[in-house]
Design a protein around this nucleic acid. Structure first.
Lengths: 132, 132
DNA sequence: TGGCTTGGCTTACAAATGTAAGCTGCGATA
DNA sequence: TATCGCAGCTTACATTTGTAAGCCAAGCCA
């Protein structure tokens, strides 16, 4: 069971861009980051990219005069780890209170509620007696 | 709008103990921590406590020869901040995908599903047309 | 063709975090 | 009463994280 290296808060912003689109060059990544938040500094982003490569979270390959980056770990996997860790840390691992918090805290649209209801239906059907 | 100082991963473990029971002495805190995870080192816990006091997240007051600790920030508040930050970081702020992740990923018991369904009902009633 | 720009490589540096270890009294114990 | 063991105070120290700044080479623009 390989463990995904820890991805820091700022690194997540970069990873999200790369998971969304790859392979992708540093310049493109930086452009996308700055669209969201103009305070991103290119040098900073490049440092973070290098770190992610060093951590083996990203792959980089020369492409002409620049590098293109691609993820080496799946988003699914990382989301899983981060979610697990968050759940444990903040809610002591109890799922229902956590979900309750979000449902109560945030005003959900009717549409959101519909979607969630459907999800639950699905899950309900799936939850047979053979649950570990 | 006062901002709660950032609480680190290990600090959360301590805070959860204190929110659950306070005022409480360092020795009691350490005992509780070690119940859960025997690898906790008393010296480490004390260092963390001192940091939390310095950060003004905890209050400490002399009580005889020892200190008793109490929270200065509400759990609710901290849970809110941490949840917000997690949601943004890992799911780009989109609530429904996040909830979907948890519902899909973890096998929920029928009972859990019932509870959630009820929560949704509640929320549904509350969500009127005047949603900002 | 001579800068200006941009990409990449190297280096910097403070703050936060995890993880303790020493030293110094006070109170309980032998 | 001499001693041990905690409680707290002070200090340590390697990593990780956030945030860049220098320097050098290859293109690109004028």
């Amino acid at each position: 069971m390989k463990t995904v290296p820890r991805i820091s808060e700022t690194e997540w912003e970069i990873m999200r861009v790369i998971w969304a689109t790859h392979p992708i060059t540093a310049a493109e990544i930086i452009a996308k980051l700055m669209e969201e938040d103009a305070t991103w500094h290119p040098k900073t982003a490049r440092t973070l990219l290098a770190r992610l490569v060093r951590k083996k979270v990203l792959d980089c390959e020369r492409k002409g005069r620049a590098y293109v980056y691609a993820p080496r770990v799946s988003e699914r996997e990382c989301v899983g780890m981060a979610s697990e860790s968050f759940l444990d840390r903040v809610f002591g691992g109890s799922l229902v209170p956590m979900l309750a918090h979000f449902v109560e805290e945030r005003r959900l649209t009717r549409k959101d509620l519909e979607e969630l209801r459907e999800l639950l239906e699905e899950s309900y059907k799936g939850s047979g007696p053979r649950r570990k």
